[in-house]
């Protein structure tokens, strides 16, 4: 379970105080176990800042975030051990093969020996990476890179997944694989939090949707509830309406 409570974060420009950006302005939400929670928000709404605070890369000015009840600021390592991360900016170690890279991240989570090998083989099989596994990642396409990054995030079967726009650049087949994968983990009782821009995907996959605008929670609920709240037929229209009229609806 991931809980975010009243997060505030500003990026201060030392030279020009006017350029200070208030990325998070009291954001709170909860992502429960056994559910897929989607974060929706326009560009610059504070989604990535919020997720980085969750990883412990940024420290919040105010408020706190917990993962399975562990505070990310007080015990970052213990909190991260419960987390699988697909970050906003990601790269690959281009001199390693896909397999070595997944192995590396599995070891960082303390796996070893047979368990580790089985876990890697499993995730390679699940994400259909078999053909690529023993090639160096240097020439990989965007989609292949995404898959390797997903594999290294999922290999230790974390209780909580955080995925920052995981489907950008994936083809239809790979998107389906990912969706099935997430659904399977959801069924096993994992907590999945992901941000996306693709409305159909969010509508089809998410149990709950959190709409973020200007660093604040604009609205939350099931896709159906959000549509009803905005009085629109589809989620896209509802989304536009909700972030446009935040005072009225979010209250």
């Amino acid at each position: 379970m991931i809980e975010v409570n009243n997060l505030h974060k500003s990026f201060i420009d030392k030279k020009n105080k006017k350029n200070t950006v208030k990325a998070l302005d009291g954001l709170s939400f909860t992502a429960k176990d056994g559910e897929i929670t989607g974060i929706l928000g326009p560009n610059g709404a504070g989604k990535t800042t919020c997720l980085r605070t969750l990883y412990g890369l940024l420290s919040a000015d105010e408020g706190f975030a917990t993962i399975d009840g562990i505070s990310v600021t007080d015990a970052p390592l213990a909190a991260r051990a419960k987390l699988g991360i697909f970050p906003d900016k990601f790269g690959l170690y281009e001199r390693l093969t896909a397999y070595e890279q997944i192995d590396y991240f599995a070891s960082l989570h303390g796996m070893s020996g047979k368990t580790k090998k089985q876990a890697i083989d499993q995730v390679v099989q699940d994400l259909e990476l078999g053909d690529l596994a023993h090639r160096k990642t240097v020439g990989f396409s965007q989609g292949q890179r995404m898959k390797v990054t997903l594999a290294q995030a999922l290999v230790h079967q974390p209780q909580n997944f955080v995925l920052d726009e995981p489907t950008r650049g994936l083809d239809v087949m790979s998107t389906r694989i990912l969706r099935n994968h997430l659904a399977k983990f959801k069924a096993k009782g994992h907590c999945i939090l992901f941000s996306s821009h693709v409305m159909q995907e969010v509508a089809a996959l998410c149990d709950r949707v959190i709409i973020v605008a200007n660093g604040k929670l604009a609205a939350q609920g099931t896709p159906q509830e959000l549509c009803e709240l905005a009085g629109e037929q589809n989620l896209e229209e509802a989304f536009v309406k909700l972030i446009g009229s935040d005072e009225g609806v979010a209250a």
Partner: peptide, 14 residues
């Protein structure tokens, strides 16, 4: 620069 450091620092390693 290759965006792998951020990933590494998100892992449960000191």
């Amino acid at each position: 620069e290759r965006n792998v450091l951020e990933m590494l620092l998100c892992q449960p390693v000191s």
